[in-house]
Nucleic acid binder design. Structure first.
Length: 482
RNA sequence: CGGGGUGUAGCGCAGCUCGGUAGCGCACGUGCUUUGGGAGCAUGGGGUCGCAGGUUCGAAUCCUGUCACCCCGACCA
């Protein structure tokens, strides 16, 4: 092969991003063995490499939930129809996408059972039993489970009929506490996204149009994908006493008054894996953030038939594994070294360690970092420590690259022309009057939706609404969304 | 749910117009040679042509229905 052909060979199996971003995404997830399509409509099988990422996400998140005083529980996946119907707005929002169980064994059920699309109603029914006194509050529970939503069109990780997630549900004595909880968990999500997934996000409050069905206020974190579209990567809701009133969750306060609780819920899903792929991926495939990479470093013995190479590679493998690095030794003799290079790059392993006769002779290992594709030489002596530093640096670099992209693709619009142009390939910051009519009009004209309103509302781009010209009330980010 | 497209070996495809009993490349098995950026030669194995009906002496091919997936919209984490 000539040099040019070799360069092209990197993308042989993957559609280039700038040719067809959607196809690139599909190629990457299938060819890196994250998932496969299941024999059920809209469902995917998460394979070991993909599930390994999810397990690491769970570990990292769960630790943060525990650290903020939450406990894990497990609720049933079936919801009696009568229970689901108690909060009108919630029902209206979810009814179109609920799957129903109508038969058990040979019996036709007298009451349909919904397969949970989310578990507010179940939590509410139990909180109504469990909460008696102000001494019982707050109750802060979370569950890891799957939910089902009968979506019209599906895409692996981004929107599947069934998906894995966590849903936190808490009840509090006061509005202040509930609001504090809502914002605290949003901040946990933001911190997790930035430090673990290496994805910068826009955090803020949703418009009434876009908020969760039944919520008083919804907050979200929105990530920008490489095609400039928005991916809602996590939400945190404050229900106020809305559900408490519908499900009769009351406690006796210190001064003996029967009082409705204030409730929150917050959730993130396997969709975050989709965000990782579309934020960090490149022409060669995945680039996984080190903290969620099932394999952080892969050792490739070079010229393994030469004496001592296999032994030295095994020794290196054991020592790095012992140091707590998720390392894999690729000692397959059925494929060439070149094949392995491409395969592990495609799978997004952060660091490749090449160990051949020349390296062993010099007491070093040849190391390639996936984020920058730089090759460096590291001494075998003290390698574990150097590698840990390198993994940290790779995480920071991925974050900085994504942040630079996000900033470059965030535009400020003063009129509809600028807004329309901006949402073609990025987020648009604009002044908004707060009226639903303008949101609808922007959606209709540009196909972009309102994403969220940042907490810092100090630098309004204009005194008037980008759409109608009436006095502006909020800074709103608009973007096309997944 | 609308518009467009695709289902033939694990993957990518040809064959279908004009019906005659299934082929190519990669991958896979075995052997030898290779081995620091997708190796070579030889030799093997593998498919009720998405599924169900229909037409026919005969269907991957024609007809009807159905399911799944992909892309673009509308709806949603």
């Amino acid at each position: 092969m000539g040099k040019k052909e070799k360069e092209q060979a990197f993308v042989e199996h993957i559609t280039p991003r700038d040719v067809d971003f959607s196809q690139w995404y599909t190629d990457v997830i299938l060819k890196t063995d994250l998932v496969d399509y299941a024999p059920v409509r809209g469902c995917m099988v998460i394979k070991p490499y993909g599930y390994g990422i999810w397990e690491l996400i769970q570990q990292e998140m769960d630790g943060r939930f525990k650290a903020t005083g939450h406990k894990n529980v497990y609720f049933p996946m079936l919801i009696p129809e009568s229970l689901l119907l108690k909060e009108a707005e919630h029902v209206e929002g979810f009814a179109p996408e609920v799957a129903w169980v109508t038969q058990g064994g040979t019996e036709t059920l007298t009451e349909r059972l919904a397969i949970r699309p989310t578990s507010e109603t179940l939590f509410c029914s139990m909180y109504a039993k469990w909460v008696q006194s102000w001494r019982d509050l707050p109750m802060k529970y979370n569950q890891w489970c799957s939910v089902m939503r009968w979506e019209k069109s599906t895409r692996p990780f981004l929107r599947t009929s069934e998906f894995l997630w966590q849903e936190g549900h808490t009840v509090h004595a006061t509005a202040e506490e509930a609001q504090e909880e809502t914002l605290q968990m949003l901040d946990v999500y933001r911190e997790f996204s930035e430090n673990v997934l290496c994805i910068p996000v826009f955090v803020g409050r949703k418009s009434d149009k876009e908020k969760f069905a039944g919520a008083r206020a919804t907050y979200s974190m929105e990530a920008m994908m490489q095609d400039g579209k928005a991916l809602q990567a996590g939400t945190s809701h404050n229900f106020g006493t809305n559900f408490a009133e519908a499900y009769n969750i009351q406690y006796l306060s210190k001064d003996g008054v029967l009082t409705y609780v204030h409730e929150t819920s917050w959730g993130t899903s396997t969709r975050m894996i989709g965000a990782v792929i579309m934020t960090h991926g490149d022409e060669r495939g995945l680039r996984l953030p080190p903290k969620i990479a099932p394999i952080q470093a892969v050792i490739l013995p070079i010229a393994a038939h030469k004496p001592g190479v296999t032994e030295k590679a095994q020794e290196l493998f054991e020592s790095l594994k012992g140091a707590g690095i998720r390392v894999e030794l690729d000692d397959r003799d059925t494929v060439s070294a070149g094949w392995k290079f491409n395969e592990w790059e495609m799978k997004g392993v952060p660091v490749r360690l090449e160990l051949g006769p020349r390296d062993i002779e010099n007491g070093v290992v040849t190391c390639m970092r996936r984020d920058t594709l730089e090759k460096i030489t590291l001494p075998l002596e003290g390698l574990a420590g150097a590698l840990k530093n390198l993994l940290g640096d790779i995480g920071r670099t991925l974050y900085e690259q994504a942040k630079a992209f996000k900033e470059a693709r965030t535009y400020v619009a003063h009129d509809m022309d600028e807004l329309t142009k901006g949402v073609q390939d990025g987020f648009v910051k604009a002044a908004w009057c707060g009226e639903r009519a303008c949101e609808d009009q922007i959606k209709e004209k540009t196909n972009a939706s309102s994403r969220n309103m940042p907490f810092d509302q100090s630098d309004l781009p204009s005194d008037v609404c980008v759409c109608c010209g009436k006095p502006a009330k909020h800074i709103m980010y608009f973007a096309k969304a997944y």
